[in-house]
Design a protein around this nucleic acid. Structure first.
Lengths: 152, 152
DNA sequence: GCTTGACCTCAACCTAAGTCGAGGTTGCAC
DNA sequence: GTGCAACCTCGACTTAGGTTGAGGTCAAGC
């Protein structure tokens, strides 16, 4: 029988604050058992789950994403090398997409530095794919200084 | 005398919502005058200030950053080509830094895919420069599954 | 058996960048 | 001179990822 860890033990072992661990539990990333006195007790495998979550988060996944990833594992099991590899491949694609987007933005900016038009009328920086689409409500169609006439 | 614009005019001319324009005024990006009846009236140059703010925001500056940039301009003046070029150069550096960081993260991830250690003990993904430093409170030193013994 | 630190819940608060609604006023056209 | 759209303020709400505090309980060492 592996010995169980308190929430304080988990915090010390992972560097994650106690409040954050409680938060992650509420979000479903962890499911500790409870003592008779209602205190949390974690399995040793939970350290790996939590570490996995932290790395994934650092790589840009939201807690919601991580929730989904961890849900693929049988509960109470630590992620294995294969789990990690599958996740890594998915994350790598995201990173690549973000890098490409930033590079394109930078290239456009370079094109705009010489121009200095600032009229937005046909500014390349305003192309709609710049800001990864799902960026909240509100249209954001951008019009120029003089919508009818081209910029000076 | 240039004719003044209402907040609705500004919204139509820039595509920014009325509520966002009020928000930007509260944040100091714009300083419209008021009519006797307390309604906002904008100078034509404010369209450029606002456009400038939108492009800068799209390039990744926060409203706070933009506030600082616009504060460099004399109030009531529209940004010139030179202003734009100076700002662009600063932004370009930021974009480059972000791209570099993401690329480094991706390379580390590639190194980790084969490893699959997940022990965090000495995971390259945990190097402290990964997540642009000022990332909120809380230590975040990461320890392994077995802090004393190296991972299997 | 008592003290003390660790733990519990729940609610409120934080930042960012706004949105939304209530309740009230302005300004322009007819 | 009135009708109505556009305007005003102010406060509450949103998402994400937590932190902080109040008020109360648990567990372990002496």
């Amino acid at each position: 029988m592996a010995r169980l860890l308190t929430i304080g033990d988990m915090a010390r072992r992972t560097g994650v604050s106690v409040s954050a661990i409680r938060f992650y539990e509420a979000r479903g990333l962890l499911s500790p058992i409870r003592t008779g006195g209602n205190q949390r007790r974690f399995l040793p495998s939970d350290i790996r789950r939590l570490s996995f979550a932290l790395i994934a988060q650092k790589l840009g996944l939201s807690v919601r994403d991580i929730e989904a990833e961890l849900a693929r594992l049988p509960l109470g099991r630590a992620p294995t090398r294969e789990d990690w590899q599958a996740l890594s491949a998915r994350i790598r694609d995201r990173l690549d997409a973000r890098i490409t987007l930033l590079q394109r933005t930078r290239d456009r900016l370079d094109g705009c530095i010489g121009c200095g038009c600032l009229s937005l009328d046909r500014c390349a920086l305003y192309n709609p794919d710049d800001r990864a689409a799902a960026n909240g409500p509100g249209p954001r169609y951008l019009l120029g200084d003089e919508p009818e006439a081209p910029a000076p």
